[in-house]
Amino acid sequence: MINKKVDSVQEALQGVQDNMTFMFGGFGLSGIAENSIAELVKKNIKGLTCISNNAGVDDFGLGLLLHQKQVKKMISSYVGENAEFERQMLSGELDVELIPQGTLAERCRAAQAGFPAIYTPAGYGTEVAEGKETREFDGKMYVLEHAFKADFAFVKAWKGDAAGNLIFKGTARNFNPNMCGAAKITVAEVEELVPVGALDPNQIHIPGIFVQRIFQGAKYEKRIEQRTVRQRS
């Protein structure tokens, strides 16, 4: 067994620097790498390019990095929940590249899988495709989208082991598996780090080969963005 376990979030984040490009798993606030984000806030490194479906909310998730003006550029598909983000974007302080959600997932997956680029129909004929190569296949038009290049991927899983194997829970899975192995270094934080051998190999979502560093997060707030319930009849 090749050991990927590190003892702290500080050790997990060794090597992060100003002006790097990071991938962050999560959909809204679900399945975000809370401990890694908190440590990046502490380190206060600047000039970051962040690839993440969303930008957190004003006081949680990636919103914390935005609040400290650590982010130079965001690459996201939907950023509607963050007022500070909108302010920085409209004032020109923050560079924002909005791309279709499926394209974001596939540009991560392409990096993970060794494809330099992919063709997708999403965005053809819109401003998203401006300046990009397009090509017709079987009478339909497609846009060439390049694999992402990132220095670190910060992902969050439910359970993991020292071999780096990961299991996700519910819709907290989202972009996390697609980002594993898609950056030079993948840092996985888990709610529960279990002994090697405790996870059934049949149930592993991401094999440890895609993960360089793994640690158990000290705590998880797991904030709910939209609490919707129904009445008991």
């Binding site: 939907y78 509607g80 499926g102 394209t103 998203v128």
Partner: peptide, 14 residues
């Protein structure tokens, strides 16, 4: 207003 397309561009393209 710039909230982003989310999954809408993928959905309508296919």
């Amino acid at each position: 207003m710039v909230k982003g397309m989310g999954g809408a561009m993928d959905l309508v393209a296919s």
